[in-house]
């Protein structure tokens, strides 16, 4: 299943946040969304998920040759195909880790035992098995983030080929080891058919782990496609107003070299 944005715009009052956005979050593909602060990355996630309505333009869910307008689907139906991790969590109540991750199963119709099994399996994916009875509010920022990531994965874990997983700056609170663990995990999920969208700030990691890159600036898409085509000295200058040269890491991946 694929999420398609067609000529989308989005404004708040007279302030134009997005303009003429056409993009695809395709199944089996990891798409990285890059851009400067305020470039419209989070707004793009908001309209892609229906949290805000694109005006003009349309958002469609495509399955085979069937296209559904996102707006025409019930909130529950959307939730069973699209799971989203917002930038920050507001949870201040002392739920256990298991209870938090179980909330990801709210849209599903499966029984409690199945849900708990899925939660146990997903907690294992980010080394949280021993945390399941810990109190969420007592955890560190990085641990909380891993719990929230598990909640998002749990939401669609039983139907990955029809799942979209969208994360807004997921790796910011994670240490380098868990950043890599996170990327490996989402690569596995993509290989099982999930469509993945990530708002990221680390361009090197995005180039290393994403199949497709959408580079945004001032509410528009500057460039999109494979990392090697999108990340150039010119596009980085256009997006961030900084001077870089593009190097290659030992394993062939792209690395930004910041000019003096």
């Amino acid at each position: 299943m694929t999420l398609k944005l067609k000529n989308c715009g989005y404004s708040v009052g007279t302030h134009v946040l997005l303009q003429d956005i056409s993009a695809t979050i395709a199944n089996g593909v990891v798409t990285g969304i890059l851009g400067a602060n305020g470039a419209g990355k989070t707004s793009l996630l908001h309209i892609a998920t229906g949290a805000e309505k694109a005006q003009p333009g349309s958002v469609q869910l495509c399955q085979g040759d069937q296209d559904y307008l996102l707006d025409s689907l019930s909130l529950n139906k959307r939730a069973s195909h699209i799971a989203v991790l917002p930038q920050s969590s507001e949870l201040e109540f002392p739920f256990s880790v298991e209870e938090v991750v179980l909330m990801g199963r709210i849209p599903s119709a499966s029984d409690d035992a199945t849900n708990r099994m899925i939660v146990a399996e997903v907690l294992g994916l980010l080394s949280l098995t021993d945390f399941s009875n810990r109190i969420y509010t007592s955890l560190s920022g990085g641990e909380k983030q891993r719990v929230q990531i598990c909640r998002i994965i749990c939401q669609v874990y039983d139907d990955l080929p029809n799942a979209h997983l969208l994360f807004d700056e997921p790796i910011a609170p994670l240490d380098i080891a868990y950043q890599i663990a996170f990327f490996k995990l989402i690569r596995t999920l993509a290989s099982q058919g999930a469509a993945i969208g990530l708002v990221l700030h680390d361009i090197d990691l995005a180039c290393r782990f994403c199949d497709e890159i959408i580079l945004m600036g001032a509410g528009k898409i500057i460039a999109s496609g494979k990392a090697a085509e999108v990340i150039t000295a010119e596009s980085i200058r256009a997006a961030f107003d900084i001077e870089v040269s593009i190097g290659t890491g030992p394993n062939g991946s792209i690395q930004l070299v910041i000019a003096d």
Partner: peptide, 12 residues
Amino acid sequence: TLGDKDAFYLGI
């Protein structure tokens, strides 16, 4: 309790 947006994303 997760947040308004999170609840919306859970289909509420």
